[in-house]
């Protein structure tokens, strides 16, 4: 009786496993990804290029995050696009006009939950509350600033070291430089450029 029961159990388990695995395989083949924006962002081949393009370079702590708003960012149409916003308290200004202690709003393209930007989604790049980041920002009139690129515009700071998941990042991907070293590198570029001007 026990043997018969075990045989039945084995058969059910085997059939169930095969069915489950085939279902998983089918999902892998046919399941799609949610709708996302696929934006083509500028690429910067050097710290020099990245620094030159940024209007504002800061280090700051995120005091609030994941606030989604539709913003009218186009001067040509009334269409509004979704952005995920965060508020950043500035702890250091490396380039540009801002004050230490000031809280600025930073926007990132897409609704992080319903309709994200694919690069930000892939890199888990939407800025998180309580995180500290080195940011290379583009400043706009009348709308919040935005990182130059999801791949290169925001670098996380953890225990005084720079950390990035993006292989294109000029900081924190292969070498976890210290914040001081990075600030020195950027400062040197700014100094050379200002002498050139």
């Amino acid at each position: 009786m026990k043997k018969f029961f075990m045989t039945i159990l084995r058969s059910v388990a085997s059939v169930g496993t095969v069915f489950l695995m085939l279902s998983l395989a089918a999902c892998g083949q046919f399941a799609g990804e949610q709708s996302m924006y696929h934006a083509d962002y500028p690429y910067f081949s050097s710290i020099d290029e990245l620094t030159a393009e940024a209007d504002l370079i800061i280090i700051g702590e995120t005091v609030s995050a994941n606030n989604v708003e539709k913003l009218k960012t186009s001067s040509d149409s009334d269409d509004a696009l979704p952005y995920t916003m965060c508020e950043v308290r500035i702890s250091q200004v490396i380039k540009g006009t801002a004050e230490v202690g000031e809280i600025i709003t930073v926007k990132q393209f897409g609704d992080f939950k319903k309709m994200p930007d694919s690069a930000l989604k892939e890199l888990d790049g939407y800025i998180k509350k309580d995180s500290t980041n080195l940011m290379f920002l583009r400043v706009f009139d009348g709308v919040p600033s935005e990182p130059l690129s999801p791949y290169q515009g925001v670098v996380s700071i953890e225990n005084g070291k720079l950390v990035s998941k993006s292989k294109y990042s000029l900081f924190g991907f292969e070498n976890n430089e210290s914040v001081e070293d990075a600030v020195d590198s950027i400062g040197a570029v700014i100094e050379i450029r200002s002498k050139g001007d």
């Binding site: 799609g32 934006a39 935005e146």
Partner: peptide, 25 residues
């Protein structure tokens, strides 16, 4: 379309009218 956008990207592709309600397509 081409628009003067206060955003950091050059271009953007947005998929519309997906094939399926589930698993999108």
């Amino acid at each position: 379309v081409a628009e003067n956008l206060a955003s950091s990207w050059y271009g953007c592709y947005t998929p519309l009218s997906r094939e399926h309600l589930f698993f999108w397509g």
